[in-house]
């Protein structure tokens, strides 16, 4: 199996997950698709180095995070709000999603990434620190601040779910 074949096998297995992470970060499926493709292209170019990583999925997530943060830096003055969202299966889910995603969107980019990695991707504090190249102490303190901010932003009925 060639390097390109190995890459294709890995990418096909994990593209969906990467796109989900990208969507949670940017709340725009089209942008999520672009971010995922850019991240996979970068991974393809560094494949020989990437396969030496202890955790290849985390390596790919790290590239994706960097692609997104770069995108944010380039367009820092045009922060996008959640665009047209697809019709949800249930109205209750719709309201829940809008509230949570809207609250997340109000966090600064890096803090949002920390929350997504910690609570959506289930990364440990140390793994988040490694991916974002931050000290563990910063990840911990920013996580605390972000959770406090989310509590402030969430609607009352959501807060009840999130206050335990």
């Amino acid at each position: 199996m060639t390097d390109d074949d190995e890459f294709a096998e890995f990418a096909n297995a994990h593209a969906e997950r990467l796109r989900n992470t990208a969507f949670m970060l940017c709340h725009d499926w089209h942008l999520a698709q672009d971010l995922t493709q850019t991240a996979l292209t970068k991974l393809f170019l560094s494949w020989r180095r990437a396969v030496q990583a202890d955790n290849l999925v985390a390596y790919a997530q790290k590239i994706l995070l960097r692609v997104w943060l770069d995108h944010r830096r380039r367009r820092s003055s045009t922060e996008s709000t959640p665009g047209v969202l697809h019709e949800p299966a249930y109205r209750e889910s719709h309201e829940l999603r809008l509230t949570m995603l809207d609250a997340l969107a109000r966090l600064p980019a890096r803090d949002r990434a920390i929350v997504i990695l910690r609570y959506f991707e289930d990364y440990s504090v140390e793994q988040v620190a490694d991916v974002l190249e931050l000290p563990v102490s910063i990840v911990k303190s920013q996580t605390r601040r972000s959770l406090t901010k989310l509590r402030e932003l969430l609607a009352a009925e959501q807060l009840a779910l999130f206050a335990g």
């Binding site: 989900n20 697809h86 889910s93 949570m100 609570y119 959501q158």
Partner: peptide, 10 residues
């Protein structure tokens, strides 16, 4: 909540 947010998406 995060997973519900994603799962509600199409």
């Amino acid at each position: 909540l995060l997973r519900a947010g994603l799962h509600a998406e199409l």
